[in-house]
Measured scan of single mutants.
Amino acid sequence: LDMDCLPYGWEEAYTADGIKYFINHVTQTTSWIHPVMSVLNLSRSE
């Protein structure tokens, strides 16, 4: 699993305190969880 590779439309950013988060420019949303990890967690719960 390549954690450096973000899906299309996603960008890694940091808060003023240096905390990493992710921006989805396609849906105009943000997430604290890496988008690949959130997809993996969803697929495990099914």
Results as ranks from 00 to 15, higher is better:
residue 30 T to H: 04
residue 21 Y to S: 04
residue 20 K to S: 02
residue 19 I to C: 15
residue 15 T to F: 01
residue 4 D to G: 10
residue 24 N to C: 03
residue 24 N to S: 01
residue 30 T to E: 02
residue 12 E to V: 14
residue 4 D to S: 11
residue 36 V to A: 15
residue 43 S to I: 07
residue 30 T to G: 06
residue 1 L to S: 15
residue 28 Q to L: 00
residue 21 Y to V: 00
residue 44 R to K: 11
residue 16 A to E: 12
residue 37 M to P: 07
residue 23 I to N: 05
residue 13 A to Y: 01
residue 22 F to R: 02
residue 2 D to V: 07
residue 22 F to P: 01
residue 39 V to K: 11
residue 39 V to F: 13
residue 14 Y to L: 05
residue 20 K to P: 12
residue 46 E to K: 09
residue 46 E to I: 11
residue 27 T to V: 02
residue 15 T to S: 06
residue 27 T to I: 03
residue 19 I to H: 15
residue 38 S to E: 05
residue 22 F to W: 11
residue 41 N to Q: 08
residue 21 Y to A: 00
residue 28 Q to M: 13
residue 40 L to S: 14
residue 37 M to L: 12
residue 35 P to H: 03
residue 25 H to M: 00
residue 24 N to Y: 06
residue 18 G to F: 03
residue 25 H to W: 01
residue 20 K to L: 03
residue 13 A to C: 06
residue 42 L to K: 14
residue 13 A to K: 08
residue 19 I to V: 13
residue 24 N to Q: 01
residue 32 W to M: 11
residue 11 E to H: 06
residue 2 D to K: 10
residue 36 V to W: 09
residue 44 R to V: 11
residue 16 A to H: 10
residue 26 V to D: 12
residue 42 L to P: 10
residue 4 D to P: 08
residue 43 S to W: 00
residue 29 T to Y: 07
residue 13 A to R: 08
residue 17 D to V: 06
residue 5 C to P: 10
residue 8 Y to P: 14
residue 14 Y to S: 09
residue 46 E to H: 06
residue 46 E to S: 07
residue 32 W to D: 07
residue 18 G to I: 08
residue 40 L to A: 12
residue 34 H to Y: 05
residue 22 F to A: 00
residue 38 S to R: 09
residue 32 W to Y: 10
residue 12 E to G: 03
residue 21 Y to G: 02
residue 3 M to K: 15
residue 28 Q to A: 08
residue 44 R to A: 12
residue 31 S to R: 03
residue 19 I to R: 15
residue 38 S to H: 06
residue 45 S to L: 08
residue 25 H to R: 14
residue 39 V to A: 12
residue 34 H to L: 02
residue 42 L to H: 15
residue 23 I to K: 10
residue 26 V to W: 02
residue 24 N to E: 05
residue 10 W to Q: 07
residue 17 D to F: 00
residue 30 T to K: 05
residue 15 T to N: 03
residue 19 I to G: 12
residue 35 P to K: 08
residue 6 L to M: 05
residue 30 T to Q: 06
residue 22 F to L: 02
residue 26 V to Y: 13
residue 16 A to W: 01
residue 28 Q to P: 03
residue 18 G to R: 03
residue 12 E to M: 10
residue 43 S to T: 11
